[in-house]
Design a protein around this nucleic acid. Structure first.
Lengths: 258, 258
DNA sequence: CGCGACTTTGAGGCGGGTCAACTTCAGTGG
DNA sequence: CCACTGAAGTTGACCCGCCTCAAAGTCGCG
């Protein structure tokens, strides 16, 4: 199959080696790619939730509007991510999702996941792992929002995003494209856009981060990670090890293999 | 089977009707109950993560220590919850877990979950739903921490907790036991204990909430929910509907090859 | 060239933090 | 029955990080 074309396969393969039929099952999730533009809404809060989607290219974020008119960005989605898993148990969307970039998404119905649970314990396990990693990310964001200063918040978000990109091969040598505006960063970090600007100025003065338009340069990764008490454990998923040990028992559910 | 004894069965049954053998599988998770005391650590950050556990009675919370010595409480666990799912993909604990109350927990190894994925697509689905609801809770906490005032934060936490308790049958007529100290509340909400105290005074003066020791009284639930822009969607899991429709297809594994 | 989106900078205000002292209360022992 | 203790909660004084409002500057693009 076209492993290299599919971000999801690459993403899942990262957790454990996939058999050919598992790859096929995954491909089924990406049958209907659709081009989307920056700023486009994939869906809005409280719409009926009937499908998930995979992000093949481009960035997206989920968000909630508050009564006072402000907006909170909940999570950033990068290529290879599955969007909407959080709503698995719900019939309504709990948050809107908007594209940051132009990109390509593939919608697939709820039922596909249920089928997948039946057909492949390996993929089920990986999916659970993906969801668990996602939760770890949320948790870390929670700490970030609750306890850190604006300065640390920004350092942390930048470092985290850089690390995530590096894993998907888009990062490298301390430079990356960050398509978020300062206002969007503010909405993600629970700050005001004005203060984000001031803080970038400060980061610049201290030589920790140089931001220009949508490009960010981090001359000293070590220094940045220390500035925000960054602990990368939550990004280093170790399921691969588990893949070798315990998953091996799993992939023989049906008798049909031979 | 002893449905009534097992919080988990009650919890899971809430999502879809369980078959007898599914109940049995769940019971296997609760084979080894252990008494624990208030303040006891179930595990600590960065210890090896080899098992999950179910909370049969008592409350618990997960937390992280930050470099500056402060502590962030991440989530509250109530009876019937599974603790540690977030670490499914990790070999280390990402957060510590501490008992708030005396209670009973049941530890079970990682592998049990993998077995469960193989044996029951229904339980797998429910587990996924549970995890998804848990994520919805985290997300709402994130909004709470990022965007709301101290006043609203406390209202929200109280209302959410009351609602969760009501569902498990422990709430009722606007009164409930909240075993958290003000310092623990502060750690959960990203506030200082001093300010939590002030805010309770304010809530008292306004007649919204009366707190005495570990008891909380909410004379007007409606008023409280309005005070914090509470939207309970994320607590009303609607999988039951899905249970009727799509889950029905699942329990018959390999017969239809399309 | 000029518009609109984004960013920067300044002035002033407030919510919540910190420190420290005091009060309340449950539990213990005399 | 009261005195003592330690944990939990309350209160006051002061401070600072971040917010808000407002205005000016920058840049890409039709």
């Amino acid at each position: 199959m076209n492993d290299t074309h599919s971000c999801i396969i690459r993403h899942f393969n990262h957790y454990a080696n996939l058999a050919e039929d598992d790859k096929q099952l995954l491909c089924d999730l990406e049958r209907s790619p659709v081009d989307t533009r920056a700023g486009q809404l994939l869906w809005q809060e409280s719409e009926p939730a009937e499908e998930f989607c995979t992000l093949r290219s481009g960035w997206a974020f989920s968000f909630r509007h508050l009564e006072d008119g402000s907006r909170q960005i909940l999570e950033l989605y990068l290529p290879g991510d599955i969007i909407g898993l959080r709503e698995f148990a719900f019939s309504q969307r709990l948050a809107g999702v908007m594209m940051i970039d132009d990109g390509v998404i593939c919608r697939f119905p709820h039922q596909h996941l249920l089928d997948l649970f039946q057909r492949s314990a390996t993929l089920t396990t990986i999916l659970f792992a993906v969801s668990s990693c996602h939760q770890a990310l949320l948790t870390e964001r929670l700490v970030n929002l609750a306890r850190r200063s604006a300065f640390q918040k920004i350092c942390h978000l930048l470092f985290e995003t850089y690390t995530r990109l590096e894993r998907t091969g888009e990062g490298g040598d301390g430079r990356f494209r960050l398509p978020l505006s300062q206002e969007q960063l503010a909405d993600a970090l629970g700050l005001s856009a004005v203060h984000v600007s001031r803080t970038f100025t400060l980061l610049n003065e201290r030589g920790l981060v140089f931001r220009n338009r949508h490009w960010v340069e981090i001359p000293d990764l070590q220094a940045l990670s220390e500035a925000c008490d960054f602990n990368g454990c939550y990004l280093n998923d170790n399921l691969r090890k588990l893949g070798a040990a315990s998953l091996a028992k799993i992939p023989a559910p049906s008798s049909s293999a031979g």
